[in-house]
Design a binder for these strands. Structure first.
Length: 548
RNA sequence: UGGGGUGUGGCCAAGUGGUUAAGGCAGCGGGUUUUGAUCCCGCCAUCCGUAGGUUCGAAUCCUACCACCCCAGCCA
């Protein structure tokens, strides 16, 4: 077993424990329920829950539900399901909205201390006076209004007496700060919107900045991990912890977010893919959402392996998609049941087989006898894949060709006799099987170069295959001006395959490998009459690579 | 342009003054193999954004420069 690779956050915690500054870390995964979780969130989930697990600490799931205009119960439910599916169990479930009353009292406290004021300027006016990157902002005319006046106005805000946009609560820090986040940031705004959890209780809602650090403090979070874009918010995060009578002092640490080649990981863009109909939903197997990856057939263990492999740093990075696929293949290799399916069939007639189909008992996995076995059949009429026969075989081709021989895996060696055509197109391959070469009891001493997969035609069942390719045609779709221009029109190809009987029944949980093809997972659209398989990821194929 | 960050092989990533500059993925070569899969073995940076400097000795310290990312929501 390989030791887990270390990274700066892991070493920091280990060090703090060794120094006696920390007994166990308390972390949190703080999603906003305004969309589905994606692979980038998986990195954060693995980090937060993983660290807590590793150092015998605790990890909370906390919904950052401070903007009811964008949030919904649908997302809350989906997020909980995704975290659980990834294999993590939170030690506590919280919502920023649980702290609305405390946060309100703290806002009042800030006003009383002269550290916040109600600003009745319009949003436009506030924006216009914020200054620019190089020029300082201008103080609001309300900045120095009496405390009592702010207090009175703030309570009118809470009471619902003011329309949206009429006033906001602002921290009184400095309009000249080079850090824009410190130029009297907005702490509360009016939103006459009902909240998925708090209902109609509030019509003013705290901003991220005013809610996040304090929520961390209330929960006793020791390590508040977030992505790099929040780095400029850290001074503000710390300002509140210093000004307010909070019960603990969490520390924010930033790491770089995950960028995955060939995908977009912004909720806005993912949402656009859904609403504009480029995919069937948040859980479409082409989506980099947790729900999409799950439906596609990626295992939680594979995703966790991926997150471990990519590491955690502060360096901007774009991970090659094949690293994700590699991790998933590595996990699925030992997990999947292996069966035979023919996706692009060509008929094979075994002219010297006269008997009824022969039942073969084949283990589901050569290295895992505990997975059991199934029955497949060999007979007079078979299907093999069109790509396994070449009339004019290139150098190094060792599948079936005119006059050649090949082993039908788990069956017999067959020798090509004839090629029959219909309208010029190859229709049937006539072969003879060698009775001395039955798999497992081969006394012939014959050696053939190739082994191919096949299914017996009489017992085979049809299934639907959803063959997926990249959703985009470019490696960096996030930079495209419009997603529409980089959508891959062939990201989903529907087809039918012949499978051995053991692959034709519904089994929503199982992971499958179609030998020599790829890993597959049954889609929830499957019915008893029509099983649907999603391509998870293809097998590595050196031969195909050599051909290009 | 003000502030905050980051620069180690194709992609990740260890490394924090003395190492032949870990490891993973990809790639290449070979072995095993009834999946051209898996598995196994070997190869793959005289060099750490660039240029100077300090030092017996630097990817690690100093200086300058360059490149890229983030910030001007009453989003998170």
């Amino acid at each position: 077993m390989l030791e887990k690779p270390t990274h700066f956050i892991r070493s920091k915690i280990a060090d703090q424990i060794k120094q006696g500054q920390l007994s166990a870390p308390v972390t949190r995964f703080p999603p906003e329920p305004n969309g589905y979780l994606h692979i980038g969130h998986a990195k954060s989930i693995c980090l937060n829950f993983g660290l807590a697990e590793e150092f015998s600490g605790r990890c909370h799931l906390r919904f950052d539900d401070t903007n009811p205009a964008k949030e919904s119960q649908e997302y809350i439910d989906a997020i909980e399901a995704d975290v659980r599916w990834l294999g993590f169990q939170w030690d506590a479930l919280h919502h920023a909205s649980d702290y609305f009353e405390t946060l309100y009292q703290w806002a009042v406290y800030l006003i009383e201390q002269g550290d916040a004021y109600v600003d009745e300027q319009s949003a436009d006016a506030i924006r216009a006076t914020r200054g620019t990157l190089t020029e300082p902002g201008v103080d609001s005319p309300y900045r120095d209004r009496p405390v009592a006046e702010s207090l009175a106005c703030f309570s009118r805000m809470r009471a619902g007496e003011l329309p949206e946009g009429a006033a906001v609560l602002r921290a009184k820090i400095s309009m000249a700060s080079p850090n824009l986040n410190l130029r009297d940031p907005v702490l509360y705004r009016i939103k006459h919107v009902s909240h998925p959890r708090a209902g109609e209780a509030w019509c003013i809602y705290p901003t991220y900045d005013f809610a996040h650090g304090q929520s961390d403090a209330i929960e006793g979070i020791t390590h508040s991990l977030c992505t790099l874009e929040f780095e400029d918010h850290r001074p503000l995060y710390e300002w509140f912890l210093k000004k307010l009578p909070v019960p603990s002092k969490p520390k924010q640490t930033e790491f770089s977010r995950l960028e995955l080649e060939g995908t977009v990981t912004s909720k806005r863009k993912l949402n656009a893919l859904v609403t504009e109909g480029y995919v069937r939903g948040w859980d479409d197997p082409r989506m980099p959402t947790i729900a999409g990856l799950r439906r596609r057939g990626y295992s939680p263990e594979g995703i966790r392996l991926f997150c471990e492999r990519i590491g955690v740093t502060r360096k901007p990075n774009t991970i090659e998609y094949q690293i994700l696929e590699g991790a998933v293949r590595d996990d699925l290799e030992g997990r999947a049941r292996k069966g035979m399916a023919v996706l692009d069939p060509i008929r094979v007639l075994v002219e010297n087989w006269q008997e009824a189909p022969l039942a073969l008992d084949i283990p589901w996995h050569p290295k895992h006898p505990e997975y059991g076995s199934r029955t497949a059949y060999f007979g007079r009429e078979l299907w093999i894949d069109r790509s396994d026969f070449e009339e004019d075989p290139p150098e190094g081709f060792f599948r079936l060709s005119p006059g050649g021989s090949v082993r039908l895996k788990y069956g017999f060696i067959v020798d090509h006799v004839d090629t029959l055509r219909v309208d010029g197109k190859i229709d049937t391959l006539v072969v003879r099987y060698d009775p001395d070469t039955r798999s497992g009891q081969d006394h012939s001493g014959r050696k053939v170069k190739g082994t191919i997969h096949w299914v017996e035609a009489e017992t085979a069942k049809p299934v639907d295959i959803r063959w997926y390719g990249p959703l985009f045609t470019v490696p960096d779709p996030a930079r495209a001006e419009a997603l529409a221009t980089v959508i891959n029109p062939d990201s989903l190809v529907m087809r039918t395959a012949w499978v051995e009987p053991g692959l034709a029944h519904i089994d929503p949980e199982a992971y499958w490998q179609f030998e020599r093809v790829g890993f597959f997972k049954q889609d929830p659209d499957s019915t008893a009459d029509a099983v649907v398989y999603n391509l998870t990821v293809g097998l590595k194929d050196q031969w195909a690579k050599k051909q290009n």
